[in-house]
């Protein structure tokens, strides 16, 4: 038994550790180093609480639902307006 692998000597490669105090940040790369093709990694911890999911800032208005743009002074609208006028004029000719 003495020579068998002991739990104490085992490195913490335990993927399904349920240690809630472990800091998952130390196992994840900072955002700047994220590769474009980084795939979805296994989580470094098994479980966490609702508190651990909270991020600072506005969490209630994540999505913009009313986004219609009524400004017709920008370039695309100006060009379009001119084109419509031109075609209208050619019809009257």
């Amino acid at each position: 038994m003495s020579a068998a692998p002991q739990s104490g000597s085992a490195p913490t490669t335990n993927a399904t550790s349920s240690d809630k105090n472990a800091d998952p940040a130390k196992d994840t790369k900072p955002a700047a180093a994220l590769e474009e093709d980084d795939e979805f990694e296994d989580f470094p911890v098994e479980n966490w609480t609702q508190d651990d999911t909270e991020v600072p800032g506005d969490n209630t208005h994540l999505w913009e639902e009313s986004w219609d743009d009524d400004d017709t002074s920008e370039d695309f609208s100006a060009q379009l307006k001119e084109e419509l006028k031109k075609v209208e004029a050619s019809k009257k000719r």
């Binding site: 800091d23 998952p24 940040a25 994840t28 790369k29 900072p30 955002a31 994220l34 980084d38 795939e39 979805f40 990694e41 989580f43 470094p44 911890v45 966490w48 651990d52 999911t53 909270e54 991020v55």
Partner: peptide, 10 residues
């Protein structure tokens, strides 16, 4: 988890 940036990004 708020700190799991890779997973949140995916």
């Amino acid at each position: 988890h708020a700190q799991c940036v890779n997973q949140r990004r995916n």
